[in-house]
Amino acid sequence: MVKNIASYLLLALTICILVEVSFPSVETVDLSRYSTDGLVLNYTVSHDANMGEHVKASKDGYETFSPFLGKSFVGFKEALAFSESGGNYRTINSYGYLGKYQFGKETLKLIGVRNIQKFLSNPKLQEKAFIANAQRNKWILRRDINRFVGKRINGVLVTESGILAAAHLAGPGSVKKYLRSYGLDNFVDGYGTTISNYMKRFSGYDTSFLIPNKKAKVSTL
């Protein structure tokens, strides 16, 4: 009887040893020493993580619309400004073009701006100048917009925003020549940018906000 009890105890001890070896105990961590007091815990994912859903690259490497503003009018003007100057209100390029939207002095005179230093130091004035110039260009090109929007020239779908962006680059007269020659007369600026580049790059934005205005001016007061 005693021998049997000893055998059972030995067997139980062996089983306990095997269990301990096979399943080592997990050390208990004392969490009382840790605290989240004072930490900002409302983290959000960066917009960059979703940028791929909003930015589409064309074959020539240009982004076809703004990642955060989409195809809105604000998206249009900010994308154009970034292309022109990187959005810098005070910049003057090597050809003497001025400000965020890179205006020429003669164009500024047409819309009522003559004080260049005031223009460069006044962001609100530059924004007004962009609107006025775009309204004037839309009036000059109104017939061409009606005639050519929806057609393809040099493989690029013609849109109103593309036409207005090209007019900002090259002037409305050059855009008329481009459209009416079906792309044969393709203006190139000093940096090698063409009307067809801008037609493609700024295609499909909503520019309905702009009212055609032959006499569009800005107040410099």
Rank of each mutant, 00 (worst) to 15 (best):
M199G: 00
S46N: 13
L31Q: 10
K215Q: 15
Y43C: 11
I211K: 14
G96A: 06
L108W: 02
Y43W: 15
K177S: 11
G112M: 06
E20C: 06
V40K: 14
A81M: 04
V158G: 02
E106I: 11
S83A: 14
L164I: 14
L39M: 14
K100E: 09
G38R: 03
G190A: 09
L141G: 01
Q126G: 02
R114Q: 14
G112V: 04
Y191K: 11
A79M: 13
N115D: 15
Y191I: 09
P212F: 07
P212Q: 10
F202G: 00
S58Y: 10
T91E: 12
T193P: 00
F202K: 00
M199S: 02
L80N: 01
W139T: 05
A165T: 03
V2I: 12
R152G: 04
I17Q: 11
T107L: 04
I145P: 00
P24E: 11
S25Q: 14
R90V: 08
L108R: 00
V175P: 00
K56V: 11
I195G: 00
N213L: 10
Y43K: 14
T220N: 09
I15H: 07
G70I: 05
Y198W: 11
G190L: 04
S203T: 05
S85I: 00
V40R: 14
G112P: 03
Q117N: 15
E160G: 02
L11Q: 12
V26L: 15
Y62V: 08
S22M: 12
N213Y: 09
K3C: 12
L110H: 09
K100W: 04
V188L: 09
A167F: 01
F202C: 02
T159F: 06
E84M: 04
L18E: 11
I111M: 08
V113N: 00
A167C: 06
S85E: 07
L210V: 08
A216W: 01
I195D: 00
S219A: 13
L120E: 05
T107A: 11
K3P: 03
R152S: 15
T107M: 04
G173R: 06
G162W: 00
T193M: 08
G112Y: 03
N213F: 08
T91R: 08
L164P: 00
G52R: 11
F209N: 10
E160C: 05
F73M: 05
M199H: 02
A57S: 09
D30R: 05
H168Q: 10
K177V: 01
R152K: 15
